[in-house]
Amino acid sequence: MRKTVNQRAWLFILPVLVLVAFNAILPLMTVVNYSVQETFGNNEFFWAGLIWFEQVIGSPRFHDSLIRQLIFTFSILAIEIPLGVIIALAMPRKGVWVSVCLVLMALPLLIPWNVVGAMWNIFALPDIGLMGYTLNAIGFDFNFTRQIGDAWFTLLLMDVWHWTSLVVLLAYAGLVSIPDAYYQAARIDGASSWAIFRYIQLPKMKRVLTIAVLLRFMDSFNIYTEPFVLTGGGPGNSTTLLSIDLVKIALGQFDLGPAAAMSLIYFLIILLLSWVFYTLMMRNEE
């Protein structure tokens, strides 16, 4: 719907436009700039064409971290979305416990990312960490700094702990917005709990779940701080996700050109996959 054109509105959003320009558009342009040039410092630049793009796309190192990234993202989506829905379904809809549950759920979201990483790092240490020590004490050979499987286990567990609440809160918001009449009608129609979930709750939660999937997808694809603090990408490169790899190339090796090209490819992958998710989930929507 087109609203009345009011030229003054532009004045009001101008500060935000300027901010966005400094925050997003200018850095992005810089990245584009770097991605097609070669620099050796001293502010000297040489045209490189698509060389960096070709190099990145052909590099096994990029393939590996992309695959690791995909495994990570799809794993946490496969765990967090159903788990979040299940927890939301189990939460009370009325009474004093509602606010208690909501606060409990919100807690992990309030903790800064680097603290989460540090927390879990200590928590999982096999010698002094509560989890690491307990696991070893009951007979598991657990050491996330040495064993690839343990590192992944800890990484996934950390992300699930940190972010499932977001899915819970969104799903819960979707659930409480369903009018009572729907549940009453379903009880009268003799619907089982499963049928109620399948034909009332799930369809009514579809929109918020789409948002949840998109948010979790984008966030997990961009994840950096937590795994970096937890494992530093190791052992070896086993938990080196795309963003960690990118930072290693850009800041560790100062290969600005390849890093810039990789950033752009990275950006395009996120854009493309988000679009795919969105279209898939919004199919059949009036």
Partner: peptide, 30 residues
């Protein structure tokens, strides 16, 4: 459910994802 009653509410309650036929069949299928 035990009372075997039916109710029509103020605002229409339908199962959005189903066809009209599936809606009508729902209480019987259950």
């Amino acid at each position: 459910t035990a009372r075997n009653i039916a109710q029509v509410f103020q605002f229409p309650v339908i199962y959005d994802t189903m066809t009209v036929r599936q809606n009508l069949a729902f209480p019987l299928r259950n």
